[in-house]
Amino acid sequence: MAATSEMLSAADNQALGLRHGIPIGGWRLLLPAGQAAELVSQPDITPLANLPTWCLGISNWHGNVLPVFDWASLLGATSAVRPYRVLVLGTAPHFWALCLKNDPQRLTALQPLPLIEVNAPPLLQAYLLGGYRDGQHTWLDIAYDGLLLHLKTLASLDGPSPQTR
C-alpha cells in the first residue's frame, strides 16, 4: 500500500514536473520521490563515540531519535560547518537526516538521461536509479535505502535505518 502510494506520488511528481534536489560534495542528488522531507535549522546533534567522521551523531526530531550524516566528507568534499542545516528523510519509523551546506532546490522540467550517460561517484554508482538534467546540471536519483545499508556495513551503525525493519 505504501509502495503503491509512493509510486502514485512519483508519477504525480513526474506529472507535476516537481522534484527537490540537494547539492552534496560537488554532486547533485534528488530527494526520494514520494517521500516527505523536512528541513530543520540548527538542530541539537549529540555526537557518538567510535563513529566515522561522516556520522555526526544523533538528534531528537519531534520525539524521534534519528542519525545525522555528513555525506560531503564521504564524497570527498569539505565537511559542512556549523550551524548545521539538516534535512530529515525516510519514512516512519526509520527517519534519518543529512547535513546540508545549501538549501534544497525546487526542480521542474527535469529531463531524464540514459543511465549510461550519467556520471556518478563510485560510492553511489551501485545505487544509481537514474539521472536528470535541468538544463545546467545533472541530478542523480539514488536508492537511499540500499546506500544506507551499505553505509551501515561500513560504519557498523546501530540505529534506525530504512532496512532494519
Binding site: S9, N13, L31, A36
Partner: peptide, 10 residues
C-alpha cells in the same frame, strides 16, 4: 518544507 510535503503528496 511545505514544498517538499507538497511534492510528496503528489
Amino acid at each position: 518544507n511545505a514544498s517538499m510535503q507538497a511534492a510528496a503528496a503528489g
